[in-house]
């Protein structure tokens, strides 16, 4: 992370740079060409978050492209964090898409490996995985800072062409809960070394583990080298909690959370309450620079939660 001068001019970067506690949301593009679906969701998020992640064929299901959806969001005044996975595209396609995204005004990209295609609706597909998420972070970093493609060529159209590199604020994911546990801080460090500017973490349902992870992060002073946004998703029901606990690899739950959800009369309200408590704690946690609020299928609910968490109004968005 370059803390001396602005690298991308993105709103998210400016908010983080100013020291303000950042808030990002998430928008899942539809399984159709329905642009209104994106517009509708963008309306709920606009003004309530600093930027919104646009998922890239999430859970390996073919959807409206993250870049196209990101451009629709831009038109609506919502800053996108375009997600790019290495599952579906090789280094050629990704670099081409990054140039295209930058030319269309996109300034944040989150680099992911992506869920394996066997989880999605085209399990017979050939996967790509030409590069992994770390190599993608590094590729974007070299494109921005060294102004070169992966192959080493300068990013310009011919010898006399103007060097026009993509100015991208580079994001990566971190999972404090996956195994091997003691490797997770190392992996974060690796992503920082590769060139990540900001990190969004896996959803927290195990605050004890997250606290421990952050402590390790602080010990290594990694929080001074990268902006960390902690992942929060309000649980909708005890069933959802149990399902995730059993079926989603890399997410862990404390018994306490499951118990609270099971005992609650109104589970949805309880889930929201837990999320709000988490945000309260995260706001005070040293080294956490913001929250990534993923309300699954609940773009509508973001405003209310942000409001109640005292995160509104957001700093005025700067575009351009």
């Amino acid at each position: 992370m370059n803390r001396n001068s602005e690298v991308s001019g993105s709103n998210l970067e400016r908010v983080l740079r100013s020291g303000e506690f950042a808030l990002t949301g998430e928008l899942g593009p539809p399984k159709s060409a329905d642009r209104n679906n994106v517009i509708e969701k963008a309306k709920y998020l606009k003004g309530n978050v600093d930027a919104a992640n646009i998922t890239d064929n999430q859970t390996a299901i073919a959807r409206l492209s993250s870049i196209a959806s990101g451009v629709i969001c831009l038109e609506q005044g919502l800053e996108p964090v375009v997600q790019i996975t290495t599952r579906d595209r090789n280094r050629l396609a990704i670099q081409s898409d990054v140039l295209g995204a930058a030319a269309l005004g996109i300034k944040n990209i989150l680099c992911l490996t992506g869920d394996h295609q066997s989880f999605g609706n085209h399990p017979d597909a050939k996967n790509v995985f030409d590069i992994d998420s770390l190599q993608l972070v590094n590729m974007l970093y070299k494109m921005r800072e060294e102004k070169i493609f992966e192959c080493g060529d300068v990013i310009r159209n011919g010898k006399k062409g103007r060097v026009a590199e993509p100015r991208i604020f580079i994001g990566a994911a971190a999972n404090p809960f996956a195994e091997p546990l003691d490797y997770r801080v190392m992996r974060l460090e690796k992503k920082i070394n590769a060139g990540a500017d900001f990190i969004q973490t896996q959803v927290i349902y195990n605050m004890e583990r997250f606290r421990q992870w952050m402590q390790d992060v602080r010990e290594k002073k990694l929080h001074e080298k990268v902006y960390i946004l902690a992942g929060v998703t309000p649980l909708k029901s005890a069933r959802m909690a149990r399902y995730m606990k059993e079926n989603v690899s890399g997410i862990t739950f404390t018994e306490d959370i499951i118990r609270r959800m099971e005992r609650a009369e109104d589970q949805k309200t309880e889930g929201r309450k837990i999320a709000l408590e988490q945000i309260e704690e995260l706001k005070k946690m040293e080294g956490v620079h913001g929250v990534h609020l993923m309300a699954i299928g609940g773009e509508k609910s973001v405003q209310g939660i942000a409001e109640e968490a005292g995160l509104l109004p957001r700093p005025p968005a700067v575009t351009g």
Binding site: S133, Q135, A178, E179, P180, Y183, K190, S249
Partner: peptide, 26 residues
Amino acid sequence: AKSLMNGPCGGSADGMCEVDTENTEC
């Protein structure tokens, strides 16, 4: 399962791969 040269990914759990948590080691 993803040929990750800088793995493991976030899906690794109990030493097993997310793609086949029953049989395949990560």
